[in-house]
Structure formats: C-alpha cells, structure tokens
Amino acid sequence: MTSYDPKADLHRYLGTARQALLWKVEGLSEYDARRPLTTTGTNLLGLVKHAAGVESGYFGVTFGRPFPEPLPWMEDAAEDNADMWATADESREDIIALYRRVWAHADATIEALGLDTVGRVPWWPEDLDNHTLHRILVHVIAETHRHAGHADIVRELVDGAAGAHAHNSNMPAADTAWWSAYRTRVEETAERFR
C-alpha cells in the first residue's frame, strides 16, 4: 500500500504545466518565439516571462521568501503588459533560464513549507491574508495550465505543432488529409449557424 502525498501530487501537476509551456517554445526561430498572434499580443516567449513573474511572486513574496533577482516588469511602476513580451534586450535563453531559476526558488519554498502554511498575497484586492500554500499551489497550477493552453494555440498558429507534450501529443494519430477533412467538417457545421 502506498501512502498519498498531496503536496507531491500538486507539485507534479505544476511541473507538468511548466514543461508544457517550455515545450511550446522549443525549436522555433527567435522571431516565431516572440511573434504576437492575437490582437492582444499573445506570444510564446511572453507567456514564459509572465509565468516566471507569477511564480516568483506567489512562491516568493507571499511566503516571505522573495526571489533574489529583480524583475522590473513585475514592479508597480512597470508599463502595462511589460511581463507579457520579451524586449530586444531579453533573449529567449535569458527568459528560459530565468524561468528555471524561478522554478528552483519556488520548488525550495514548496519543499520547505507545509500545505497549511499561511502566506499573504499583497496584490490581491481583498482578504490579503490567510492563503495557504495549498491554495497558492492550486492557483498557480491553474494559471500555468491556462497559459500552457494559450501556448498550445499560439504554437499551432506558428507552425501547426499541437499537443500536450513532445512524448504524448494527446491528439488523434492522423495525417494532414484527415485533419483537413475534420476542420472542413467543423467549418461546414458552423456555417449552418451563420
């Protein structure tokens, strides 16, 4: 009989989301990693940069363990959406390496604290206190998976690559002709409601 470790389970789900997000940037040109493909400017490298900022705050400041490096795009005085794109001075390698350093810092917080440890989220408008590590883990898992979903769509728009991760796409094993026919069928059905 194996014992259940809820913290390890939550940590594993966070790790899955992190890996999925980074996988979406792999193998792309610098341009494609940065290219905005929605009207709100959503781009792959920006999603990674944002995720680094999110984790640095929730697993850092919230529990009195601030991430030791400055993240100017997360400051109150930063321009809107500064965390959602990489400037010309921020390379893909820099952003990914930063995200990995933030992971290590976040992982140290997760490992050091119990799920019932209470923190304070200063940027939440109400009820800043009394948020447990458990609640913060669930919140960050949901947010990271949400952004990994954004990355799924953006990557598919860049080069057609789709799926959950490199070793398990979680997609039907089908060729280009099947996908084309499938898309046509979906479009034809939608047209009936125009």
Rank of each mutant, 00 (worst) to 15 (best):
I96L: 11
V121N: 10
A52W: 00
G57F: 09
W103A: 10
H50A: 02
P70V: 11
G53A: 09
A52H: 00
G57S: 12
A88E: 15
P72H: 09
T87K: 14
T117S: 14
Y58R: 06
P72M: 06
D127T: 07
P72N: 10
L47W: 01
R101H: 04
A51D: 08
W85G: 07
G53P: 02
W124V: 13
V102T: 02
P66S: 05
D94W: 09
P125A: 14
P122I: 13
D89K: 15
W123N: 10
F59L: 08
L47P: 00
E75W: 10
W103L: 08
L113E: 06
F67Q: 00
S56E: 05
F59I: 02
E90A: 04
W123K: 12
A77W: 10
N81F: 10
Y58M: 11
E111L: 12
E75Q: 14
D83S: 11
H50G: 00
W124P: 02
P68E: 11
D107W: 04
W85M: 09
Y99F: 15
L71V: 02
E126A: 14
L71R: 01
A78Y: 11
A52C: 10
H50E: 02
G57D: 10
L128T: 13
L71C: 08
E126I: 10
M84L: 15
G64V: 07
P122Y: 11
A86G: 02
N81G: 07
E55Y: 03
A78D: 06
K49C: 04
G46H: 01
F63D: 01
A77D: 14
P122R: 14
G53W: 06
V102I: 03
V54R: 00
D116P: 04
A78R: 05
E126W: 12
P125Y: 06
L98K: 09
T87G: 14
F67K: 00
E69D: 14
A51H: 06
V121P: 05
A108P: 10
I110P: 00
E55G: 03
A108M: 05
V61N: 12
R65Q: 12
L113S: 04
M84V: 04
A88R: 13
G119Y: 01
G53Y: 06
A104R: 13
T109M: 07
L115H: 08
V118I: 14
T117I: 07
V48H: 00
E126C: 07
D83A: 07
I110G: 00
I95C: 03
E55L: 11
A51S: 15
